[in-house]
Each structure stands twice: as structure tokens, then as C-alpha cells.
Simulated assay, not measured.
Amino acid sequence: MATPTPFARQLSAELIGTALLLATVVGSGIMAEHLAGGNVAIALLGNTLATGAMLVVLITAFGPMSGAHFNPVVSLIFTLKGEIAPRTGLAYTGVQIAGAVLGVWLAHAMFGLDIAQASHKVRTGPAQWLSEGVATFGLILTILAVRQARADAVAVMVGLYITAAYWFTASTSFANPAVTLARSLSDTFAGIRPQDAPLFILAQIAGALAALAVCHWLLQPPTQESLPS
């Protein structure tokens, strides 16, 4: 059997990692809702802890292989920064979306649900869109700032950020277009109506671009003239 090329391994890492992330988001939502007995706060807490923990694991495991983006806006930002080629960014985005859908279907299969679904959960309105912009802004800011300050802490910091953002944003912090598209295919606790997904995604892209602009200024090394005397 031929050894996969480095690029094939990178794409496989993004596919598998994104699939496991979505299986966790949706599967833990199903389990949490089932066990919480109608207490939505407890269900959200279970969903949050599982997602944050899995992000730490996945970023640590797959970071050396592909960078562990698992998110089209993360790939977009690194493309715009010139750290990956546009071809790579597009390929990552394709496999991230495919992996996200596979992860949702896997969660459905594990819980004995219909594989093909469409969500009926309403998530729309200015507060939700603002929340997605803020959530994605904070995610990109976390990644870029922590990479510069302490690169070996990115996995933990991203996991902690998403854990917090589940609770401080009205949208529960999707912050990921692939996640948003895939969750529209799950009529479960973690779902979003397909018609609500496009504006979530636009808000996520806007938040990511805003974070890139802020970080371009904020994370510049200080010049000699700007250092305090």
C-alpha cells in the first residue's frame, strides 16, 4: 500500500478532526438533553464541557499534521496571512464541510436516530448575528494572540474560549461555517434551521476578518520608539 502524501495526510487530519468535533457537539447535545430531564441549563453545560474538552484533544492531536483548523474561517485567516496557499485553504474548507456532515451523521447513527434530518430550531435575529460575530472575533483573536505569546497553549486556550463563549453569547458560539452548515442537518439540541445558517456564516466571516485586522495592529512587535523610557 502506498504511503499517503503529506497533503493527503493534512486533508485526512482536517476531515477526521472536524468529523469528531461535530460528533461531539451533536452527540453530547443529544445525550445531555436526554439526561437533563428538561433542564436546559444542565443540558447546555453538558454540551459545553464535552465540546471544550474535545477541542483540546483534537487540536493537540492533529495540530502537528494539519494545523488543526477544523473551521473554514480559520483556514481563511491563515490564507490571508500567507501561511497557507489559497489552494490549501480551499481544500481544507471542502474537507472540513464534508467531515462536519459526516460527524453529524455519525452522532445520529450512534443514538439510533434518522441519519438524514433538517433542523427546525430557530436561531435568527440581530442579537444572534451579533453573537456569532463576537464569538468568531474572539476565537480568531485567541488563536492569533496565543500563537504569538505561547504557541504550546493554543489547544487549551481555544478549548477554554469556546467553553466560555457557549455561555456568554446568545447564539452559544457556533463560530464556524462548517459547524453551522452541518448543525442545520440535525433536528436535535444543537441544531439550527437551514434558512438561519447563511446569516450566521456571514456574521462569522465578518467577525473573523475584524479579528484579523485588529491582530494585525495589536500584535505588531513594538518599535524602539514606542518602548517606554
Rank of each mutant, 00 (worst) to 15 (best):
P4H: 01
R147D: 09
I97N: 13
T93H: 03
V25C: 03
G159W: 07
F137H: 11
E14V: 11
T163W: 00
E14Q: 14
H69A: 07
P177G: 12
L44V: 12
F200N: 11
Q224E: 15
I84S: 09
G125K: 00
L185Q: 15
A170N: 05
A203V: 01
P222F: 02
I84F: 06
G99F: 02
L20F: 07
S173L: 07
F189Q: 03
R193A: 15
K121A: 14
I205F: 14
Y161N: 11
A151Q: 10
R150L: 06
L15H: 15
G52W: 03
P126E: 02
D196C: 02
I115R: 13
R87M: 10
F168I: 12
A116L: 14
A190S: 15
V95Y: 09
T48D: 06
S12P: 03
T180V: 01
A61R: 03
P86I: 06
L20I: 06
G125Q: 01
A13P: 13
H108G: 13
T136H: 07
L44P: 08
M110R: 09
T142K: 06
S226K: 08
A85C: 05
I140H: 08
R147S: 14
Q224T: 12
L20V: 05
Y92Q: 13
G191W: 01
I42C: 05
M1F: 05
S173Q: 10
M65S: 13
P64Q: 04
S184E: 03
